[in-house]
Each structure stands twice: as C-alpha cells, then as structure tokens.
Nucleic acid binder design. Structure first.
Length: 413
DNA sequence: ATGCAACCTATCTA
DNA sequence: ATAGATAGGTTGC
C-alpha cells in the first residue's frame, strides 16, 4: 500500500464526500476499472490508459498517452504544431468530464436527506457516490450484459469484449489494456457464436443484434438522445415548469428509443439514460431497487404488488417526486448501500472486546428491533467472507466472528 | 394489459 | 456434498 511514488502524479484536491472512487468505481456503474495491490485504479479510456489513486485530500491521476506507445496511430505531423502531444491539462479535462465533477454532491446529499428520512439514514455510510459520464455505447453494451447477472461476471464479460474486439492501447503492470470496441466491431458475422463460446450465454444474440442496429443508424444516433444541458447542476429547484415526476420529455424520448434495441428493457434503458446519456432523473428499477421500494417505500401491495411495467413506472415516478431532478443519483446511493460487496459497512461496530466477550455493540445503518438484529447478523457473516477474500485483516475478522456468535443467540428469541 | 416460462453461467445458500 | 436460488432482466407467448 505504501510503495507508491505519488510525487510523479498530478493531483486534484477533492474531498471523499464529493467523490469516493473506491465506492463509485465498483458499485456497478462501470465494469472496466481494475485496482492493483497498491490501490491504483486503472482503465483504458479515450485512447489512453488512465490511472487513479485517492486519499482524503487529493485525487491523484496520470495517463499513459498514445505517444508513450511503440506505434502511434497517427503521425505527429497531423497534429497542430502547438499541441503535438496530449498534456496533463487534457487529462484533467477528461477526468472532470468522465467523473462528472460539476455537480456539488454534498449539497445534493443534503437535499435528498432533507426530503427523505430513509435516505438520511442510509447515506452517511455511502458518501461520495457520483454518477459517471460514461460513453453511451459502452454503457449500453455493459448493461445489456447485466441482465440476470452479477457485477463480477459482467466485468469479466466486458473485459473479454475489449480483449477480443477492442484496439490494444498498451500495457500496465504487464497487463494489456484495450479500448472499448466500436459498434461495427461487434456487428460482424460470427460475433454471436464467438461471444457464446466466450461465455456470454443468451446475451450474445442481444449484443450482436443491437450492434447491427446501431451500426445501421447514423453514427451519432445515440448522441442525439443525450441530455443537451452540458453539465447538470443539481442545486436549482427541481419544481420548474419543465419538471414532472415522469421526467423531462427528452428523457422519455431517449428511454422509448432505447427500448427498440434487442436486449434492452426498461431497466437497461434507464441505466443507459442515467450513466451514458446524462439524464439525472432516470431511475433504473432492478431487483435491488424493487426490494428497497417494498421494504422502505411501501410498494409491493395492492395495485403495485408485482413489478409490472406499470409498477416500474410508478416506482420511478415516486422516487423522482421524492428526490427531484437528480433522482437517479440518489437512487444509486441506496442501490450501492444494498450491494453485497459493500455489506461490511453495515456491520455492527464493536466498541470493546475483553477476553472474547463482546462488551458493547453499536448498530449502524439499520432500524432497532428484533427483525433487524437478525438482518445485521446475516450481513456480518457475509461481510466476513468478503473481507477474508479481499483484505485479510485477521484481527478484525476474529472480532467480528464473535459478534456473529453473540447475535446469533438472539435469533427469533 | 398482466402473467409466465425460458434463457447462459458462476457463485452463494441451505 | 449437491440441488436450488440468485445475480443490477428481457423476450415472446
């Protein structure tokens, strides 16, 4: 962890409340970031390899530009003489855009907390969750892969797409980094069979057919569906004349257009709207969000007993009415809180341990009461397995196992 | 308009 | 140890 020479990195002052890459880059938005043992996140992006590291004061960044590679794709003479190589300012601009740094996340969290007690309760453990501005095509492909799937396998599948169909940009830590393949690369004969052999399952056909459909449209078709408001500043009142719980007309139009693609249903369409097209009000209702809607927002009964198309829209409208124009951002915070990969943050905090006896246990992130004691106990167990794989903090593990035994006795007492 | 089985696969769960 | 459920769903009947 400590063998990083950060002196050679560019840095940007930013607080963990405004951006937490450790949460944002692995909460199921983007599937290509990889973290090494030194805590450096890397990904091929826009013809370069980008690396990130964060501490409480700064976001550190650096990129391996095309010029550092063996064979530049374009001769230097084709560039204007003043800008012969990508500069670090260029990278900063790219970062600012990709990480979507314009909106003030702290203000937004405050707004959502003021209008929703449940958000106020859950959010403090999951600050700095920011919606990335990803490429729309990449988001589309990634979320077509996401159906009936888990984040680990989705990431693996996207990686295979890049390896097999994306241009090689270079190496880092002896590993190849490929850029994301363009639509025409996936619209070739034989792609479906190849993807099946690579383990994509029934999504192989969806990807091939959607790639063909996108390739047959004008090049900028996806871009025409984008939110034209360049940076979405979220601090203005959300009850403007153009605002409705259904969302803005441009968002509805984009959503409808995306539904015509193979393998794209309402949930995937909303993921692309939110993370690829800049529509902050898009609320993807997946299995997690549906659970949340039932548990914390009184859905799941009467008219909205099951997740039909009508219920899907009702859930989105409810959250948009509650959280406002950046409802999709707030949704992602609660979604992240529900992910198993982050369940360790809901673990009860051990105040003191003496001779194997738990003296005090403080619950965080849940209601009081018998029901939740059982819930937390389950979360603790999953948290242990998770940590054992990733961090290997043996002392913490021992303590938490004792917590498990302690709380287990209270099961259904 | 709602309900339902089928769809690929790796991992978790009981 | 092993069948069943689940993981950021969509499709077609």
């Amino acid at each position: 962890m400590g063998a990083l020479n950060l002196a050679e990195w560019q840095k940007l002052p930013i607080s963990l409340s405004e951006l937490c890459i450790n949460t944002t880059l692995r909460c199921g938005q983007s599937f290509r970031w990889r973290k090494n043992d030194a805590g450096v996140w890397s990904m091929a992006l826009h013809n370069r390899i980008l690396s990130l590291h964060q501490d409480p004061q700064y976001l550190y960044y650096r990129s391996i530009p095309p010029s550092a590679r063996q064979t530049p794709p374009t001769p230097p003479s084709s560039h204007p003489p003043s800008i012969s190589e990508p500069t670090d300012d260029d990278t900063l601009e790219l970062l600012h855009h990709y990480l979507n740094l314009a909106p003030n996340l702290t203000d937004l969290y405050q707004q959502w907390s003021a209008s929703d007690a449940n958000f106020a309760k859950k959010a403090p453990k999951f600050t700095g969750v920011r919606i990335l501005k990803q490429d729309a095509w990449e988001a589309l492909v990634g979320f077509i892969c996401s159906s009936n799937n888990n984040i680990a396998r989705i990431s693996q599948m996207v990686h295979k797409l890049c390896i097999n169909y994306g241009p090689l940009l270079g190496h880092l830590d002896d590993e190849p980094y490929h850029d994301f393949p363009p639509p025409h690369a996936l619209a070739q004969d034989g792609v479906e069979a190849k993807l099946r052999s690579l383990g994509f399952g029934y999504r192989a056909k969806y990807l091939y057919r959607t790639a063909c459909m996108i390739s047959s449209k004008p090049d900028n078709w996806l871009e025409t569906l984008r939110n034209p408001e360049s940076p979405t500043l979220g601090v203005e009142p959300t009850s403007g004349s153009d605002w409705a719980p259904e969302g803005r007309p441009g968002y509805r139009a984009a959503h409808t257009a995306l539904l015509t693609l193979q393998g794209v249903g309402p949930k995937v369409a909303d993921c692309v709207c939110l993370m690829g097209l800049g529509w902050g009000e898009a609320v993807p209702v997946d299995t997690h969000v549906w659970q949340i809607a039932q548990r914390d927002y009184k859905f799941g009964k009467g008219k909205h007993a099951s997740l039909t198309k009508a219920t899907y829209d009702a859930v989105g409208n409810r959250f948009r009415a509650l959280w406002g124009r950046e409802a999709g951002w707030a949704h992602s915070v609660l979604f992240t809180a529900d992910l198993r990969a982050f369940s360790e943050r809901l673990v009860a905090k051990v105040e003191k341990v003496e001779e194997g006896v738990v003296i005090g246990v403080k619950m965080e992130g849940g209601d009081e009461g018998e029901q939740d004691v059982v819930k937390v106990e389950e979360v603790v167990e999953r948290g242990i397995k998770r940590e054992a794989e990733e961090e290997g903090e043996s002392k913490v593990l021992e303590v938490e196992e004792k917590v498990v035994r302690k709380t287990k006795r209270r099961r259904k007492a």
